[in-house]
Design a protein around this nucleic acid. Structure first.
Lengths: 107, 107
DNA sequence: GTCGAAGTTCGATAGGCGTCGTACTATGGA
DNA sequence: TCCATAGTACGACGCCTATCGAACTTCGAC
């Protein structure tokens, strides 16, 4: 048993471990880009199931893992749900303007 | 015969045809990212052969084509040489901050 | 305890693509 | 005209990965 029962943070790279190659490769996939743009509108994060994506649950889990391991988003548990949120502060600090530029895209 | 003999522009998408998906996918490859970061230091552009890359000439041509078709760089001929340059103005207009953010990356 | 819901993990599959060597084109110089 | 140089085009190969279904885990509710 543990004093901290709920809301555990899933493993993710520290800010200084984030690599630009991994971030860009993660963003360079349509479904993952859609996830990022969706999360950008919900600063508090969102549960996986809330995402409206044209793929199955297992594929969605795969993409969320890829984004998390690249350092693009953070995930913590809330019961059986997993809440994911953009790591805007870290990304803005490392690559100022990058996320803003991506989000500015209309097409 | 042609009035304009040298310096032809190779086909590339217009600014309004550039898609964020294609740009990010193009940037999400180590060799191509290296090309972009190199070109960022040479506003006037650079010949393919001048690039110091860990791949053969044919692979380099492939990457340059990918970047050009994505709208990341422009290429014009100069004799047998092909001079490539970053399309900073277009990219900055479409995705303000994106290129700056990428170039800000130390790692 | 039992059940259902939310997500992950595993294995398999298929398509995409980064890589190379070779052949080819084109331009400029001797 | 002939040749060397710069670069592209093509075909093949192998790896990477996006995708899925099915089995598994975890948590909350009853």
């Amino acid at each position: 048993m543990d004093t901290v029962s709920s809301s555990k943070q899933l493993p993710q790279p520290d800010r200084d471990e984030i690599r630009i190659d991994a971030v860009l490769q993660a963003l360079g996939e349509p479904v993952r880009l859609l996830i990022v743009r969706t999360l950008a509108d919900v600063p508090g994060g969102i549960a996986c199931g809330e995402l409206d994506l044209p793929v199955t649950a297992s594929t969605r889990a795969h993409h969320l893992r890829t984004l998390r391991e690249a350092g693009v988003l953070t995930t913590h548990t809330d019961g059986t749900r997993r809440i994911s949120a953009l790591r805007r502060d870290d990304l803005d600090a490392l690559y100022p303007g990058l996320i803003d530029g991506v989000l500015a895209a209309k097409r």
